[in-house]
Amino acid sequence: MASHAEKKLTPSRILIYATLLLACVAYLIPVFIMIITSFKTTGDIRSGNLMSFPEVWSVDAWIKAWSSACTGVQCNGVSGFFWNSIKMAVPAVLISTALGAINGYVLAKWRFRGSDIFFSLLLFGCFLPFQVILLPMAATLGKMGLANTTTGLVIVHVVYGVAFTTLFFRNFYVGVPDALIKAARLDGAGFVTIFVRILLPMSVPIIMVCIIWQFTQIWNDFLFGVVFASGDSQPITVGLNNLVNTSTGVKEYNVDMAAAMIAALPTLVVYVLAGKYFIRGLTSGAVKG
């Protein structure tokens, strides 16, 4: 909208640009600080300030954060946590996306008595404050022998992620004309064939949205990680938190920032590469939820 004819630089337009630019700076500064701090030496931090560039650019903090910083009693850096996160996120993302696609397909194109009610009930999962399921989930995982395992975390993320993925796929498939499904049925295609041969090939965009959304959510999760995992299965967010809030020794902000960068990089990279899918997931998840 806003079809004002003038595109010349009037004073009011300069003001608009200035405000927008100022906001850009405000949003960017924390990450800017994070980056320059992570390349400083401990001495640099004491002598300089937040916005000063490092005297010498040093990767020591990064190396320490990755391999030797203390995260509680252990001092092996966050590398182990990083790999845990990958081992947890990849299967959880794939499984929840696959389940969501199938659910969305049924809920949009093969509705039956009660399927709409089921959908509403499932949607509540998007709003659930997870605190309310922590205790029973912990007990159940314990009973199943999955407490403190990556498998356990994968299961938890699938169970509570599937509400979102189902929502994404259902809304996408609702937009596919019913006539297409009818035509395929007349051609003799059944439930599975229609899904695999007709719908899946056209679902690439929504699969992207789903994967990116789920990856961001699962990678960034802290609550499940801190409650359901311990020691050698904890994800990167827990590792970072342990590193930052560990009370032994002097506080090394450069190492903290390097570790934070390590934790942030995968999702930031995904955002920079596929931001439009991320934003689409964000807005559709919120508006329709």
Binding site: A2, S3, H4, K7, R13, I16, Y17, L20, A23, C24, Y27, L28, P30, V31, I33, M34, T37, T216, W219, N220, D221, F222, T237, L240, N241, V244, Y253, D256, M257, A259, A260, A263, A264, T267, L268, V270, Y271, V272, G275, F278, I279, L282
Partner: peptide
């Protein structure tokens, strides 16, 4: 308001959402 480079600006406003709250907390604590 028909802003030039709108896409870039929008990307900048939104990137914090891709970060974990733990990262955000760590940075702001600093």
């Amino acid at each position: 308001q028909r802003i030039r480079n709108e896409g870039v600006i929008r990307t900048i406003y939104l990137y914090p959402l891709a970060l974990s709250m733990i990262v955000t907390g760590t940075v702001w604590q600093w």
